[in-house]
Design a protein around this nucleic acid. Structure first.
Lengths: 193, 193
DNA sequence: ACAATTTCTTAATGTACCTTATTGGCTAAC
DNA sequence: GTTAGCCAATAAGGTACATTAAGAAATTGT
C-alpha cells in the first residue's frame, strides 16, 4: 500500500509526528478502481472518506428527469465523498464514478472520528480542509448567480488546467451547468476571437 | 453582554464545561449595529467571526458592473463572515450589511485560534459547522446548475420561511440569481396556480 | 405627517441558453 | 472489418430570463 502521497499531503498542511502517521496508516485501505466503476451509488450511505492517489473521479447528482449534474471532480491528492451522507448516516443522493482507472485510499467514518478524538491535529486539518472547500464552493455559487456560462468556462480553464486536459467536454458542461451543445458554441466563439 | 444565546447554541451541538464557557465569554465582544450599517466592507480584511444575537444581515459580492449578488443571509443564531479572508488574511471581496437593527457577538481570529488550541471541543464544533455550511452550499450549487428559478424560489420559501417574511424580494432575487422583475413574474405565476 | 426612498409590479423587447436533430470522427467489441 | 457506441460539432426553433422604462404601493427618515 502506497501511503506516501497522503502523508505528504497532510504534512504540507501541518507536520505530522511518527505516532500520528502510524495511526493514520493503520486505518487506511487501498483500493483499485476501474474506469466507469462506482465508489458511491445513489441511495447508499457514504461510510468512507476517499483520497485519490491516482486517477480521476466525478461526483454527480441524478435529477428526477434522469439528468446528471456534476458537483465535483477529483484527481490526485483530492478528497471526494458525500459529506452530508457521511455525517448524517442518511442515504446519499449523489453518485461517485471513476472517469479513469484509479487507485484510492479510504478511511471509514468510525476510524476518522477516532483519529479526530485521539489526535486533535487531524481534527484541525480536516477543519481547514472543509473551510477551504466551503470557500471554493461559495466562489462557485457567486459565479453561478453572477456570471455567464462563457465567463464560467474561461475561469474553469484557468483555474483547473489539469482538469481541462483529462475530462471530456460533456462532463465539463455538466459541471458548469450548461448543455454540451452550448459549451461547444462557447468554445467556438472563444477560438475565433 | 448577553452571551446566553451563543452558549445555548454551542451546548446544543456539544455540551460545554464551565471552563470552556468562561474562555469563550472572555473573548466575545458585543456590538449594536444599525440597519444599513456595514460590519465588513470590500477590500477590508475579515478579522472577526460574527454571531448574530438579534437582527438580520446579508453578505454580498459587488461585481465589476456594480451589481450586488447575495451569497448569504444571517439571522438569530447564525454565523456570518468571509471565511476566505478570515483565514488567508487577504482583503475581502465581500460586504456584510445589516438589513435590520442588530446585536452581534464577535470573536477575533487570534482568539478563535487560541480557543481551538486550548479547547479542542471548539475545534470540533467549528469543523462540524463548516461541514454543515459546505453541505448547504453544495446543495445550492446543484440547484443553480440543475433547477429553474421558479424551483429555486419555491425551495427557498419552503426551506427558509423565516427569511421569507423578513427579507425583501429584491434581496431574495439577488440570492437566487435572478432580477427582481423576473422574481415578480414568478410570484405572480405561482399565486395564480 | 409628509417627503423621500425603496419596493413591487407590469409590459415590451432582447439575449442567453435549451431542445432536438443531424453529422462525422473516434474507439471498442465481436 | 463491420458494427456499435461515445464524443464533438453545427443548426434551427423554442424557452427562460434580462433589460429598460414606467407607475403604484409600501417603508422609512426627519
Amino acid at each position: 500500500m502506497n501511503t506516501e502521497p497522503i502523508i505528504k499531503y497532510f504534512s504540507n498542511i501541518l507536520p505530522l509526528e511518527a505516532e500520528e502517521i502510524n495511526a493514520l496508516e493503520s486505518v487506511l485501505k487501498e483500493r483499485t478502481i476501474k474506469r466507469r466503476q462506482f465508489i458511491l451509488q445513489e441511495r447508499d450511505v457514504c461510510t468512507q472518506n476517499t483520497f485519490v492517489v491516482e486517477g480521476c473521479f466525478r461526483m454527480y447528482y441524478l435529477d428526477v428527469q434522469g439528468k446528471e449534474h456534476n458537483l465535483q471532480f477529483a484527481i490526485e491528492n483530492w478528497w471526494i465523498g458525500d459529506i452530508g451522507s457521511f455525517h448524517s448516516g442518511e442515504p446519499s443522493k449523489l453518485c461517485i464514478e471513476a472517469i479513469e482507472n484509479s487507485i484510492i485510499l479510504q478511511i471509514k467514518k468510525e476510524d476518522q472520528l477516532n483519529l479526530f478524538i485521539q489526535y486533535s491535529k487531524f481534527n484541525r486539518i480536516f477543519r481547514m480542509l472543509s473551510e477551504n472547500a466551503l470557500v471554493a464552493c461559495q466562489r462557485r455559487v457567486l459565479q453561478n448567480i453572477g456570471s455567464t456560462a462563457e465567463e464560467r468556462y474561461l475561469d474553469f480553464v484557468n483555474r483547473y488546467p489539469y482538469f481541462f486536459n483529462r475530462i471530456s467536454n460533456v462532463q465539463i458542461a455538466s459541471f458548469l451547468g450548461v448543455t454540451p451543445e452550448f459549451l461547444s458554441t462557447i468554445r467556438k466563439k472563444i477560438a475565433s476571437s
